[in-house]
Every structure is written in structure tokens, then in C-alpha cells.
Amino acid sequence: MISFTLNGTQRQYQGDPNQPLLWYVRDELNLTGSKFGCGVAQCGACTMHVNGQPVRACSTPMAAVQNASITTIEGLDSVAGKAIQHAWQRLDVVQCGYCQSGQIMSATALLQNNPSPSDQDIDQAMQGNLCRCATYHRIRQAIHQAADDLAREV
């Protein structure tokens, strides 16, 4: 049996330990905010936080989340996460929106690790998240804005 916390709730899992975290969350918990894009950790649409770090849930087997604390977009309520979401809304980053849960999870993790990232830091942290609508230009701006907002709040 695999035990872990997901969005603050303690959970147990007894199914196929090879099932990726993404499909467990989407098909068994019915939390559909995390998206499937590639299945091989190449696009970032499925990004969740496991113990505070961004991971590609499509390639994270359930066996790997024993005792982990997992956050999905639905459970994102950190100060950095809210700042990122507000900046995303203020700048209207989204187009089709499909990749944006993953973008927001990656961007939040970036700000939690580095409160004032440079363009280069952003490129490095975000290059695993594809966006076919190419909203990258606004993603960069929104991360800077969120960083500025957080700096003001401190």
C-alpha cells in the first residue's frame, strides 16, 4: 500500500504501482486540472509539486510517491502560487489554456526557490513546459510581475 498526502488529504493507493501519478489523479480522483500532453516528461502539461518540487506526473509512477506530499493545480494555495495565478490573469497569459496548469505549477516552484529570477533563470526553469500557443513572452512577464508583487508584500 502506498500512502501519501494529496492537496492536504491523506490517501492510500493499492493499485498498479506502475500507474503514473497523472492518471491516478485524473481518472481515480477526478481532478482534471493537470493535463496529459506527451506521457514522457517532455511537455510539462502534467506538472505537479511533489514535496515542493515540480515533477512530471505523467512519468512519475505511484510507487515513487510513498510518504510524499503532492500538490496539484486544484490544491495550489501558497503565497507564490496565488501571486503567479494573479499575474497570469492580469496579463491574460492564457490562449488555449491547456498547458497552463503545468506552466503555473512550474512557475510557482521557480518563485518558491528563487524569489527574483532573471530571464535566464526563467528560461531554465520553464523550458520543460511546452506551449504551442507560444504564450512564452507573457509567461516571462508574468513571472517577473509575480516576483515583484511578492517582494512588495514581504
Binding site: 477526478n30 481532478l31 482534471t32 486540472g33 493537470s34 493535463k35 496529459f36 496539484t72 493545480i73 486544484e74 495565478q85 497570469w88 490573469q89 491574460d92 497569459v93 492564457v94 489554456g97 491547456y98 497552463q100 496548469s101 503555473i104
Partner: peptide, 21 residues
């Protein structure tokens, strides 16, 4: 004017075909 679909697309609430149950 703000995009009308920004709130649900930044919170994971927007429903796409993959999310239909």
C-alpha cells in the same frame, strides 16, 4: 478588456474534451 476565459484557465477548472466524464 480582460479575457473572459482567464480565471478558469489559470485554476485548472476549464474543461476540455479530455476532462469530460
Amino acid at each position: 478588456i480582460p479575457r473572459i476565459d482567464s480565471p478558469e484557465k489559470t485554476t485548472g477548472k476549464a474543461i476540455y474534451t479530455i476532462d469530460v466524464r
